[in-house]
């Protein structure tokens, strides 16, 4: 089934079976391997991407449902090759990861939070990432990373990215 998606600002057309999830489409059809499969039943959050500016689980959405929608994956956050976003850099600064598997979903969730809340409390940060399971870090350095990113963005008066209407995370 022909489906037109906008992925990281680029219009693409894919021809997929209706049963293919957006997650599998991104990975297998569009070669965007940064979005990860963790549980494929909507609990772990490793597959989190932005759809029309809101964080959603790409394993709980069919690729054909993405027709005409604007999708942003982890590959769409780095400003340039070899250059990190404020959030990505903050994760490196505090070592807010270990194995790196849940990290893309975590960073998408963090961007979603910071796009509408530039001074989140720790409680709000924890709430925003509560749907993303990490087995390595115990979340401590992830919370630090998002706190640090928020602080840096406030100082530079920028936002995680311009999004409309997205609920936190």
């Amino acid at each position: 089934m022909k489906t037109e998606l906008t992925v990281n600002g680029r219009a693409v057309t894919v021809d997929v079976e209706p049963r293919m999830t957006l997650l599998d489409c991104l990975r297998d059809e569009l070669d965007l391997k940064g979005t990860h499969a963790g549980c494929e039943h909507g609990v772990c959050g490793a597959c989190t991407v932005m759809v029309d500016g809101r964080a959603v689980r790409s394993c709980l959405m069919l690729a054909v449902q993405g027709d005409g929608l604007d999708i942003r994956t982890i590959e769409g956050f780095a400003p340039d090759a070899g250059e990190l976003s404020v959030v990505q850099d903050a994760f490196c600064e505090t070592h807010g990861l270990q194995c790196g598997y849940c990290t893309p979903g975590m960073i998408v969730a963090a961007h979603a939070l910071l796009s509408h809340n530039d001074e989140p409390s720790d409680e709000e940060i924890r709430d925003a990432i509560s749907g993303n399971i990490c087995r390595c870090t115990g979340y401590g350095q992830i919370v630090e990373a998002i706190r640090l990113a928020a602080e840096r963005m406030r100082q530079s008066n920028t936002r995680a990215f311009e999004a409309e209407g997205g609920e936190s995370a």
Partner: peptide, 9 residues
Amino acid sequence: VGHPPTRNR
């Protein structure tokens, strides 16, 4: 109801 990302869909 659920988590923020599930409420978004």
